[in-house]
Design a protein around this nucleic acid. Structure first.
Length: 439
RNA sequence: CGGAGCGUAGCGCAGCCUGGUAGCGCACCACACUGGGGGUGUGGGGGUCGCAGGUUCAAAUCCUGCCGCUCCGACCA
């Protein structure tokens, strides 16, 4: 992408509304614009990141055996009345009346709707298990939206729902999601720690939150220090195998959010030098809730004995738009964002130090074409600007690599390559730089 | 929803206390200089001072109401 043609409204100064670092950087890097409290427009650079995160989430969901659907943002109140949540949900649910006076709502979650879809189609245990997910905008009219996209009112969420004949089946689904989540977050360069969590208004009794440790996190968390060194990407996962041992290995050490925390147990199970008490960002939450919705909504299937039983369900959420903020909270420095490569909006920032120099510009243009031809995503600062006025937002927008080409270096056959993380510049030949970036 | 604060040009702010008809920096436009990382100089453009009432000869400034936004707390992907 040529910067001269792109829409990248960066800011030197931070808008007064932004308090935490990810919010400030997202605004300054031209990723988002606030539309109203807790509601954001995504600008090109931010949207690229959002899409990359979404794609990783989708790939890992598919890999685990889930099937993608897409349910609407607007739902009818009827199903919610059946489940009993129309009254329970309170003011957080945005209620709308259509022109015929029918009660509608902007979906804060989709248990009811997916259960309705399921019950209308599945009648037998033979069709189980099933996992259905979608990635859709949700609306929760938070009392107090804050922290930019980390706690918006409108947010993009992946929510998956599992359907099984019994608890054992549900536990297998739960384990799949558990493992899938570890891999999903790891692919984004995040260390997410699964912690025992409260089930909240969704209900149920088996629940983990996936927490990114960060000082600006919203909740207090307690866990065993060894979690910090756990590595998940090491081996591929066979989702058809028994995942229980793997899940056990991730749940045997103490890790709980503050509502589940028990100081006495913490001190008993974790040696003092291994106790970690930090703040964390919740990026995922998985629940088993049995027949909480299938019973009131009549999602019944026939067993092998031809009995009608309510299916056991679980739901599994990932805050996709929140993750954009979470990645930044976990990865930045004074100068700006440091994108992990898998979610970076571009891999390389290419900078022409002297656009007035024909040879330099030609070298830059050719480099841009070569990188593009090799499938490398490049943001190319090709603008004809004065020397000191050169866009210096490359550190701010945090692309993994910066390739800097100027006439002085070209005379010696050298260009500069800078890795954003670490920030050291290296002089090398253009060929070596290209080889490095296309490797 | 309890507590605190803020709305003045695209962004950051001053002016308000003590009313006299709006200013600074960045950004933007033009020209010149300049070319190894958020230039320099000169000249410009842009604002119903959140909205509505009120007080006054006169309101960004004082009073009342409303709207919007932020922060701290309780709630949540």
């Amino acid at each position: 992408m040529r910067l001269s043609a792109y829409f990248l409204p960066t800011m030197k100064e931070t808008p007064a509304e932004a308090e935490i670092v990810s919010h400030r950087l997202m605004l300054r890097a031209g990723m988002i614009r606030q539309a109203s409290a807790g509601i954001y427009s995504w600008l090109p650079l931010g949207l690229r990141v959002l899409k990359k995160i979404e794609r990783i989430v989708r790939e890992e969901q598919d890999r685990s055996g889930a099937h993608e659907v897409l349910m609407p943002t607007i739902q009818s109140a009827d199903l919610w009345k059946q489940s009993g949540r129309y009254d329970d949900y309170g003011k957080e649910m945005l209620r709308i009346e259509d022109r015929h006076g029918r009660e509608m709502l902007y979906g804060p979650t989709n248990e009811e709707l997916i259960t309705d879809i399921f019950r209308s189609a599945v009648k037998s245990y033979r069709d189980l298990p099933k996992m259905l997910y979608h990635i859709q905008w949700k609306f929760r009219d938070e009392v107090r939206p804050r922290f930019g996209v980390m706690r918006g009112r409108e947010f993009l969420m992946k929510d998956n729902y599992s359907f099984d004949l019994d608890y054992e089946g549900s536990k297998r689904a739960y384990n799949k999601m558990f493992v899938s989540y570890l891999r999903t977050f790891a692919r984004m360069g995040l260390k997410a720690i699964p912690m025992e969590a409260d089930t909240g208004p969704i209900g149920g009794n088996l629940s983990h939150e996936f927490i990114i440790l960060a000082d600006t996190g919203e909740s207090e968390v307690f866990c065993h220090r060894d979690f910090v060194d756990f590595d998940v990407l090491g081996s591929a996962v066979d989702y058809e195998a028994d995942l229980e041992p793997l899940v056990q290995s991730w749940t045997k050490l103490y890790a709980r959010t503050d509502d589940k925390h028990d100081q006495a147990v913490f001190e008993k199970e974790v040696p003092e030098d291994k106790r970690l008490n930090r703040r964390g960002i919740e990026v995922g939450h998985i629940f088993y809730f049995g027949t909480k919705y299938s019973e009131p909504l009549g999602a019944l299937v026939a067993t092998p004995e031809d009995e009608q039983v309510a299916v056991h369900m679980g739901s599994y959420g990932i805050g996709v738009s929140r993750l954009v903020g979470a990645v930044i909270e976990a990865s930045h420095d004074e100068a700006g964002i440091i994108w992990p490569e898998p979610v970076a909006p571009f891999k390389v920032g290419l900078m022409n130090l002297k656009t007035a120099d024909a040879a330099c510009t030609q070298a830059c243009d050719e480099t841009y074409a070569k990188l593009g031809g090799a499938g490398v995503e490049v943001l190319y600062d090709d603008r004809d600007e004065r020397p000191g006025a050169k866009f210096n937002g490359m550190d701010l927008i945090g692309l993994p690599w910066q390739l800097i080409i100027g006439p002085r270096g070209l005379d010696k056959g050298l260009v500069e390559l800078k890795e954003r993380r670490g920030g050291e510049r290296e002089e090398l030949s253009l060929e070596s730089a290209l080889a490095r970036l296309t490797a």
